[in-house]
Deep mutational scan, measured.
Amino acid sequence: PDLGLTQLFADPNLIENLKKNPKTSEMMKDPQLVAKLIGYKQNPQAIGQDLFTDPRLMTIMATLMGVDL
């Protein structure tokens, strides 16, 4: 199971919303991170391994779920 990750990354406004959010806007200036996020739309399971190697993803996930870290 993808634990709902498919829906989190399926939002067509995902990148724009993250660019507008004060907690994630600075991160979204990294083209490699943006490319990763776009890739998760097609393969949400890929985030599982990346969560352990890129701490920014935890902040992004929390933001998408509405959790304040």
Rank of each mutant, 00 (worst) to 15 (best):
P1I: 11
P1H: 10
D2C: 09
D2H: 14
D2G: 14
D2A: 15
L3P: 11
L3T: 11
L5E: 04
L5Q: 05
L8V: 10
L8Y: 11
L8I: 13
L8E: 02
L8P: 03
L8R: 05
F9D: 01
F9A: 02
F9R: 01
F9C: 05
F9Q: 01
A10C: 07
A10P: 02
A10K: 11
D11H: 06
D11R: 03
D11G: 04
P12G: 05
P12F: 04
N13Y: 11
N13M: 10
N13G: 08
L14A: 05
L14V: 09
L14W: 06
L14H: 02
L14D: 01
L14M: 12
L14S: 03
I15G: 01
I15E: 02
I15F: 06
I15V: 08
I15M: 06
E16H: 09
E16Q: 10
E16L: 10
N17R: 13
N17G: 07
N17K: 15
L18N: 00
L18Y: 00
L18F: 02
L18T: 00
L18C: 02
L18G: 00
K19G: 04
K19C: 07
K19D: 02
K19M: 13
K19Q: 13
K20W: 06
K20M: 12
K20V: 09
N21F: 05
N21H: 14
N21G: 03
N21D: 09
P22D: 05
P22M: 05
P22E: 08
P22N: 06
K23F: 09
T24R: 00
T24D: 00
T24Q: 00
T24G: 01
T24F: 07
T24I: 06
S25Q: 10
S25E: 09
S25P: 00
S25V: 07
E26I: 06
E26T: 07
E26S: 08
M27A: 05
M27E: 02
M27C: 03
M27L: 13
M27Q: 02
M27T: 02
M27S: 03
M27R: 01
M28E: 00
M28Q: 00
M28K: 00
M28G: 00
K29E: 09
K29R: 12
K29D: 09
D30C: 03
D30K: 01
P31H: 07
P31A: 08
Q32K: 12
Q32D: 14
Q32Y: 14
L33N: 01
L33M: 05
L33T: 02
V34N: 02
V34M: 06
V34R: 04
V34I: 13
V34K: 02
A35E: 13
A35L: 13
A35Q: 12
K36E: 03
K36I: 12
K36G: 02
K36V: 08
K36Q: 10
I38G: 05
I38Y: 08
I38V: 10
I38K: 13
G39Q: 13
Y40P: 00
K41S: 15
K41V: 13
K41C: 08
Q42F: 09
Q42Y: 11
Q42H: 14
N43A: 05
N43H: 08
N43F: 10
N43E: 05
N43S: 06
N43C: 07
P44G: 06
P44E: 04
P44S: 05
Q45G: 14
Q45N: 13
Q45R: 07
Q45K: 10
A46N: 12
A46K: 12
I47E: 03
I47S: 05
G48S: 15
G48F: 15
Q49M: 12
Q49R: 12
Q49W: 10
Q49T: 13
Q49N: 13
D50P: 02
D50R: 03
D50H: 06
D50W: 02
D50G: 06
L51A: 10
L51F: 11
L51P: 04
F52G: 09
F52C: 09
F52Q: 12
F52H: 12
T53P: 03
T53L: 11
T53W: 09
D54W: 02
P55K: 09
P55F: 08
P55D: 06
R56W: 06
R56Y: 04
L57Y: 04
L57Q: 01
L57E: 01
L57V: 12
L57I: 11
L57W: 09
M58P: 05
M58F: 14
T59Q: 10
T59H: 09
I60A: 02
I60K: 00
M61R: 03
M61T: 05
A62L: 15
A62V: 11
A62F: 14
A62Y: 13
T63C: 07
T63L: 15
T63K: 03
T63P: 01
T63N: 05
L64Q: 02
L64V: 07
M65Q: 08
M65S: 09
M65P: 03
G66Q: 09
G66S: 08
G66A: 07
G66E: 12
V67N: 12
D68A: 02
D68C: 04
L69M: 13
L69R: 06
